[in-house]
Simulated assay, not measured.
Amino acid sequence: MAAGSLLALIDDIASVLDDVALMSKVAAKKTAGVLGDDLALNAQQVTGVNADRELPVVWAVALGSLRNKAILVPAALAISAFLPQAITPMLMLGGAYLCFEGFEKVAHKLLHSAAEDAAHEEELATALATNADMLTVEQDKIKGAIRTDFILSAEIIVIALGVVNAQGASFGAQVAALVSVAIAMTIGVYGIVAGIVKIDDLGLYLSRRTGAAARALGGMLLAAAPRLMKALSVIGTVAMFMVGGGIIGHAFAPLHHLATQAAALVADVPVAGRLLAAVAPSVVDAVAGVVVGAAVLLVVALAQKVRGK
């Protein structure tokens, strides 16, 4: 009897693990789009520190991301069980915050003079000259990246939760699937981020090799690294608008319909129709993100002005 019970338990566990693996795979596919935006945002967030501190910063943000998910997984399960109607408003608030953060970056670029930017860069360079100030700069970057990661992780967890709920999974299988997705996404995102920020070091290493092909590749990587880091600043900001606008669009029916209509409108364009149809919803999301970000920044600025008075 005991042996039979043990075998039955093992069979049940094996069945649950099979379901978890399947659901994790489906959920990972569903969240792949968010993963790309997450990658762009977080790579942009951790650039700009001293070269020998890049990996420690990435590691610190990755640990912060795991802590975020350790909070979000049980919170999502609890909210889904006891207050499911709160998930959408909370996601919309998170999306609005991403839009605000993106527009704040744009506004800073547009409203500050070149002299102010130069003074800020000089101040940052001076701060990096001492270890104490360098650690302060690092901590600011880490906190900012973890805040951004929290919102993106929340979207990933909610999407994954929706997938496993649609499968009619048991509570244990839901927990296991969400944990699997959370760990896999964290390792995937921050592993690639670590690779991105160390491209210049790889290029330097290859450029010192004896082989001509290795030196040529190293030179290409060294030339590409600064351009990539500059591009990440732009890509990261655009991603904030796309993700934030997308979160709001999924919850706000008129905006979702507008994105769908935009895709249908350009789908019949010769040659490029399929590509345009795939890109159109993201463009609508990005534009919506800019509008929402501007509105939130205006409200915040007015509130600060009133509070200042």
Rank of each mutant, 00 (worst) to 15 (best):
I79N: 00
V20Y: 01
V299P: 01
A32S: 13
V175P: 01
A125C: 05
G191K: 12
Q167K: 08
V234P: 07
D201K: 03
V243T: 15
S113V: 08
V20M: 06
L17E: 04
F82G: 04
E116M: 10
K30S: 03
L55N: 07
A43C: 06
L39M: 10
V306A: 13
G245C: 10
A81M: 08
Q174M: 12
A115F: 10
D149H: 09
P226R: 06
N165M: 15
R215D: 07
D19C: 09
L298H: 11
A294S: 11
F171N: 07
K230M: 14
G249Y: 01
A160G: 06
T237N: 04
I247D: 00
L258K: 04
T260R: 00
S65L: 01
L39R: 04
A70Y: 12
T148I: 10
L232F: 07
G95E: 03
F252H: 07
A288P: 01
V284M: 14
A278K: 11
R208M: 09
I79F: 08
D285K: 02
A264S: 11
I159S: 10
V266R: 03
A177N: 04
K198T: 07
V26Y: 12
R147I: 15
T210H: 13
Q139D: 08
V193S: 03
G308V: 08
Q44D: 10
A75S: 14
H120N: 05
N50Q: 10
L9M: 06
R147D: 14
M185S: 12
A262V: 09
A127V: 06
L83I: 11
V283K: 08
D268C: 09
S207Y: 11
W59G: 09
I87K: 05
M220L: 11
V181M: 04
I13V: 15
L232V: 03
S180C: 06
A127Y: 03
A212F: 14
G168D: 07
R53N: 12
A129V: 14
L221I: 02
Q304V: 10
V137K: 00
A127C: 13
G244N: 02
